[in-house]
Simulated assay, not measured.
Amino acid sequence: MQDDTDQLLRAILRDVLGLKPGQAEAFTAQTGLFGHLPELDSMAVAGLLTEIEDRLGIIVEDEDVDGDMLADYGSLLNFVSERRGAA
């Protein structure tokens, strides 16, 4: 499920943020997101989380959203993977 989640999350980031071709595919676990990607500003976070919920069938509670979750790609992937595993 991790590979599936990884690919889906990269597609969501690419689609929601309008990233350049290949940009999301090049992300590593340490790739910074919020505060590092100009496309991911506070307005884009809401759209990103809504799309994650819709496409991956998980619920993201307000209290789940913090700087750590969106700090880097690895943190976001771990969060989404854990939620998908619990779904």
Rank of each mutant, 00 (worst) to 15 (best):
H36Y: 01
F34L: 13
D15E: 01
N78V: 13
L9T: 14
L33C: 14
S81H: 08
I52H: 02
A24K: 09
K20M: 10
A29S: 14
E82M: 04
A86K: 01
L37W: 00
R14T: 15
T28P: 02
D4V: 03
L70T: 05
E25P: 12
E51R: 04
D41Q: 03
A26G: 14
F34K: 11
S81E: 06
P21S: 11
V60E: 01
K20H: 14
A11P: 00
D54C: 04
L17T: 06
N78H: 15
L13C: 07
G35N: 00
L8A: 09
A11G: 09
R83Y: 05
D66E: 13
E82H: 01
Q30K: 10
V16T: 11
G47R: 02
G47I: 02
E25A: 15
Q2T: 10
L17F: 08
L37Y: 00
M43E: 15
A26E: 15
A46V: 08
A87H: 08
G85F: 13
I58R: 01
L40W: 07
F79S: 06
E82T: 03
D72T: 13
F34D: 13
V80I: 11
L70V: 15
L70E: 09
E53G: 02
E53N: 03
S75K: 10
D62W: 02
L13H: 14
A71W: 10
M1R: 04
R84E: 13
F34C: 13
D62Q: 04
T50L: 09
G57R: 09
E82A: 12
A11V: 01
L48W: 05
Y73W: 12
L9D: 10
R83Q: 15
V45W: 03
V65H: 02
L49H: 00
L76R: 04
T5W: 05
A26L: 09
H36D: 09
I58C: 01
R84V: 12
D64S: 10
R83H: 08
A29G: 08
T50H: 07
Q7C: 12
P21Q: 05
Q30E: 15
P21F: 05
G18I: 03
I52D: 02
Y73F: 08
V80P: 06
D64T: 03
G18P: 01
A87C: 10
D6L: 15
D66W: 10
F34Q: 03
R55I: 09
D72Q: 08
R83G: 14
D3I: 11
R10N: 11
L56P: 07
Q7S: 12
T5Y: 07
V45G: 07
F27S: 11
P38Y: 02
D68C: 09
L8Y: 04
Y73Q: 07
L48S: 11
L77D: 15
L40C: 06
E25L: 04
E63T: 00
G32L: 09
I58N: 00
A24I: 11
Y73P: 04
D62G: 10
V65F: 01
L37S: 00
A87F: 07
L48D: 06
E63D: 05
G57C: 08
G22W: 07
I59T: 15
A24C: 10
V16I: 11
I59N: 09
L77H: 06
L56H: 07
Q2P: 04
